[in-house]
Design a protein around this nucleic acid. Structure first.
Lengths: 360, 360
DNA sequence: CTGAAAGCGCTTACAG
DNA sequence: CTGAAAGCGCTTACAG
């Protein structure tokens, strides 16, 4: 065999076999500029030589010459997170479809790795010359997104980063609430309640807007007593107890919600804050002998894995991560190839989708 | 500022400011060989210059010169998978701890991306010169793991790849079954049943071995009627219905198991095949008015997200992905730095851990 | 001990 | 149109 002493085939090896210059071979095989006119015959000869020698272009050399890396950096606080994990999966899948690859950066906020991981990735991604960055770090991690954006102008966020002019996609929570209310109204529910966790964040306000708008559209009265704000009861998020490895959820706020909305408010349906909320509602309602969906219908938000395994399975709103990922890759590629997008095209709304199971 | 016309600082820029050669600067900043003796003072001056100019070594240039990439390739069939996603997370976290990064390759078996993804990643990882590969692709994907191993001798598998001499970690399923039986026996259960899906795969046989060994250790009789083999009822795996986005599970096999083990066998506990099995058992038992854990205790296997959200929450065996990831990174780093491991050190068993919730 | 110089494998401006 | 040559930013063998 030719070149058996080398472990890897270079462009020049192919060029020699095909009896052309590197210039021509590079143009045919790697699409580099240089010679634009090459006869079909020559091109074919070059390709055959490349195949015969199993030529693989050296990525580092192309990078060093200033070509793009065809690599994205992906920032996420925890790739194991049941929702973010799908974003990881779909983002990479969309990237691969157009020949790109993904560096994962998921140790943000992980105490076993150390502090400042966010900033470390920002630098590391720069060093490795990623073409752009996806940032899907939850808003409660107060990282320096502005520094990220300065170092990597080609960044697309999942959900608003709170930086004017940033490019991001966002799930339409107003529509999510409307979908839930619409479904419940169509199934004959008349006293539909809404649970939010605060009215100080725009995402929660959007839900309330959607809830109210759909009630109006259905000509159902808006009853203040059917809106529950969990804020006074502290943060109600599922969190993993490191010692027991179990996810825990503060039940008190759920009990207060049941009392306010169902016992006092006589709600026949609840649009829950999210699937954790909804799942806890299911359990607590059973303890009180309240049947779901017979007495009260429950709709969640997330379409988390658990939705299929609650009893009854949870009707919930899916966040359409695949569509979100597609949009994010599309936005980022445009930024890479066209440069900064016009203001009006920097925010893309994702329309969520109701998944009907048994709880409503 | 110095060098304001260039967008990026090179080693030579730092060297000039520090009034040394690239050689010395490279040695101090990037640990490259060359000058071994450099005065502390000079080193300090170089470091200051680097900091002042915000020098970041160019990754591509180092790679091109033959240094390692400090990058792992990670093959997984679906990064969104609730269990594999943790492996993705922990593997990257362990990698980052020692300064390495991870390319994700998760589109294997994804029809929307196209066929032959496994082979494509094998080539792409080679092109990008990863130092080693983690392969956590489920055994039912019949990919060419031998080709992977040929191209990337530094590969560590999650679970046995079926290739003699391969390096892998494996969860000790015998121990998993023993943990479950031990816990149940200690809680006073006397008629403990085991459900497997086949007796033709070694992992299922290992469970049976562990089950029998622990019964013996507890001086409980082994009753053949308390071992259920689901094989005749077809594959019982949870699978996602693409149209409805819901996870579906074949209930027939569960009904047969209830009839065989609980109704006829009078089992007071079931060691289920996995958490999906166990969750379905919980639902079907409730329908039949059989209480868990009062009448029958249930133990799962996986510690899947759903375990906290079944009703009652599921007592199950955790696969210890974090420990597995740590071992995988450790094995791979040894292979990279020391070369192929001695036969006796190529297989590492992970000891799983029982997580007690409410179902047992 | 020290630094100038070659070279990793590409791409591309440039001379023929 | 074509190919030789420079150069991307490092590392390291080698000459001084």
């Amino acid at each position: 065999m030719v070149q058996s002493k080398r472990k890897t085939t270079r462009l020049i090896d192919v060029a020699r076999v095909a009896k052309v210059s590197c210039c021509v071979a590079g143009h045919v095989l790697n699409g580099s500029r240089g010679n634009s006119r090459v006869s079909l015959q020559t091109a074919q000869r070059i390709r055959e030589a490349a195949q015969q020698l199993n030529y693989q272009p050296n990525h580092a050399a192309r990078l060093l010459r200033g070509k793009r890396s065809y690599t994205y950096g992906l920032l996420v606080a925890s790739a194991g997170d049941p929702l973010r994990s799908f974003l990881v999966q779909y983002l990479d899948a969309e990237a691969v479809k157009i020949g790109n690859h993904t560096y994962i950066g998921n140790t943000i906020g992980n105490p076993s790795v150390g502090p400042d991981q966010f900033d470390a990735y920002v630098e590391e991604f720069a060093r490795r010359q990623v073409d752009g960055v996806f940032c899907a770090v939850h808003h409660w991690f107060e990282e320096d997104r502005q520094a990220l954006l300065t170092r990597h102008p080609n960044t697309v966020f999942y959900e608003a980063p709170g930086i004017p002019g940033a490019t991001y996609i966002t799930v339409d929570r107003e529509e999510a609430a409307r979908l839930a209310v619409r479904h419940l109204a169509e199934r004959g529910r008349r006293r539909i309640a809404l649970a939010v966790m605060t009215l100080s964040r725009p995402t929660h306000l959007a839900r309330r807007r959607g809830y109210e708008a759909e009630l109006r559209a259905r000509e159902l009265p808006l009853r203040e007593e059917l809106i529950f704000n969990g804020e006074p009861y502290g943060p109600a998020f599922a969190r993993c107890n490191v010692a027991t490895q179990a996810w825990e959820f503060p039940h008190e706020v759920i009990d207060r919600a049941i009392e306010a909305l169902i016992l006092r408010g006589k709600a026949d349906a609840v649009v829950a804050y999210d699937d954790f909320w909804a799942a806890s509602l299911l359990t607590q309602l059973r303890l009180r002998g309240i049947r779901v969906p017979d007495d009260v219908a429950i709709v969640g938000y997330l379409n988390h894995y658990l939705a299929d395994w609650t009893d009854p399975p949870l009707t919930t709103v899916d966040l359409q991560h695949e569509a979100a990922a597609r949009q994010m890759v599309h936005l980022l590629e445009r930024m890479i190839t066209e440069g900064s997008l016009p203001e009006s095209e920097r925010v893309v709304k994702i329309t969520p989708k109701l998944i009907v199971r048994k709880s409503a």
